[in-house]
Design a protein around this nucleic acid. Structure first.
Lengths: 331, 331
DNA sequence: AGTGTTATTGCAACCGATCTCAGCAACCGA
DNA sequence: TCGGTTGCTGAGATCGGTTGCAATAACACT
């Protein structure tokens, strides 16, 4: 197929390059008949504009990076899924960047995206975000973070209300009759993870019970260790809150290997609301984060910041999702 | 920060644009002292070349698309993960494209990637690949498919030996003492899915038993339906082979909801070897696909085709991963 | 010394768009 | 009828590189 450039379309339509350009990217600046003619000709030739050339000249592209630590983690996968959709609803191309938790790689992606003239980026961190580091990059001021950040209001964020979520979990368990409720912390070392734990500690204390933190690690084995710890206790809690669904899976799996059944022997509740949870054994009761909303909102925030410079911090409401991993305490 | 272009570096180093260009992209064409000097100056300025401008002129970029139907499916997530790594080991930028099974979107990605001058692409399909459709695109001849294709040897492929995998599963189950073994088919409508089923049918018949296909759908609910079907049987099999891990999860979950336990009441074996399986309840016995290898090989095949035009079809060996979801048949 | 390589570097066109500026025609009011 | 707008289109520079070709210098050989 012959190389299709704006010039061949221009020639075919009998107008100048610049008119073709305008016909596409600034329709109101071209007489409507001319424009329609051009569009028809272009259509006939099967022409589309080169995003590269466009980006080069305009110094802004339509590709936006989503930086996640681990796509293998279903939370990020679901986030990526909804964000892809949200992005191309608005004409963006989402570029998924997986750091594997390596900050150096993260930096690399940033510079790459800068070079690609990405208009902004979305970061789902695995650690507490260093806003200073963010700002070393040209579009540091054009990043929205899917987590809370500390001491710096200049970067937009989206989160769910951790405290509210933990409260939902606690209330659910209480209403089932549980009074001793343990906690296993999450995978990521984010503010969000911290907040959930803090909320657990605080709310438990408030209700007059003693908090039982079974594990406070932030790696993939937190669940397994939490379960081990649980098994060693003389007087273990009757229910466990896991800081996120993946950890809940691990907890249930480890418990299961030791012959304990959920929810008959222990109740376990997660936090995330992964679709996967519905197909777990047993189906996981959990606190749902509105992941789809987070994706859309992240993009909206970025766009909003781009136009009026406003920096928002959106906190979404979690929701209880009762499935099969919680029940009344044994006996 | 001042706009960094090749010209400012050139000026700073006291040489011509073209020399700077060569210093970076064709080092042997520049006297080594000159080159070192230029590199030093560039370094000092914090200069990096614009991939956009490069791609535009060279008509080839370093971004390569990986097209998957659903990133939420851990198989594709793991594939994406290893491919990201494989890609940037070789200096490529992986661009993850999620189609949600929509062929139109898939087409869109192709044209976009073409416009970005991607040197080749990788497709992990969710249906039998239509090689004709692939070829409508400029780099249709530069695509490697992670599945078998039919009647067209002109596109490189990577797969694992389905028959061998099913054999592994069957042998494992036989050696445990199972004689009646059911099958629930997979999520995707790929050749691979078909091959697994065919292998099951054939090998079961060969061993003198009657195949029991519990469900042959290719959607997410195959597992659930398979389990229902199982529960309705008068004389159900003592073990179930699931066409992939996700289905196995669903089967076990559905069985569990009806009070059946795995592996005590039924053995279930999956196919994929997802990391997630190790944290399932019970940990899933499965046939492992060497996903990491597949990623690397896919890229190698593409590169190889790019240089010498060769088209290979690699078939990898699966491997049995015995965990906790299989045991001797009850009684 | 004269001539034929070979190694380096500069020149300038080019990739495919965008965008400012200028030109031109039609239209308006006085 | 004439200066002033307004609407539309063409020219040409520009974005940040690459690359074929020409120019120059250095070196080898007869």
């Amino acid at each position: 197929m012959p190389d299709l450039s704006i010039d061949v379309v221009a020639k075919a339509a009998g107008v100048h390059r610049s008119t073709v350009s305008r016909a596409f990217s600034r329709p109101e600046a071209v007489k409507s008949e001319t424009r329609e003619h051009i569009l028809k000709v272009a259509e006939g030739l099967g022409y589309t504009m080169s995003p590269l050339a466009q980006a080069l000249r305009r110094k802004t592209s339509n590709i936006i990076p989503l930086i996640v630590p681990d796509i293998t983690n279903p939370f990020f996968a679901e986030l990526a899924k909804t964000m892809t959709q949200a992005a191309d609803e608005r004409g963006y191309q989402l570029m998924l960047c997986v750091t594997n938790g390596d900050p150096a790689k993260s930096d690399g992606y940033f510079t790459a995206m800068q070079a690609m003239y990405a208009p902004f980026g979305i970061v789902a961190p695995s650690t507490k975000v260093d806003t200073e580091a963010l700002k070393r990059f040209a579009f540091g001021h054009k990043v929205v973070v899917i987590d809370r950040v500390e001491g710096d209001d200049s970067v937009p964020t989206v989160t769910v209300d951790s405290r509210k979520g933990i409260m939902l979990a606690l209330d659910h368990l209480h209403s089932l009759g549980h009074t001793s409720i343990g906690y296993v912390s999450g995978i990521a070392g984010t503010h969000t993870a911290q907040d959930r734990m803090d909320a657990y500690l605080e709310l438990t204390a408030q209700s007059g019970s003693t908090p039982v933190v079974l594990d406070s690690g932030s790696d993939l084995d937190a669940g397994t260790r939490g379960a081990e710890h649980f098994l060693e206790m003389d007087n273990p809690p009757t229910a466990i809150i896991a800081a996120n669904d993946m950890v809940a899976f691990a907890v249930i799996s480890a418990l299961g290997r030791s012959g304990l059944r959920v929810p008959e022997d222990v109740s376990v509740i997660g936090f995330d609301g992964l679709a996967l949870g519905a197909r777990f054994n047993p189906p996981l009761t959990t606190v749902r984060q509105p992941i789809a909303d987070m994706g859309h909102i992240a993009i909206e925030l970025a766009e909003k910041q781009n136009v009026d410079g406003s920096v928002d911090h959106i906190v979404l409401e979690p929701e209880l999702l009762v499935r099969g991993s919680t029940s009344e305490p044994r006996k």
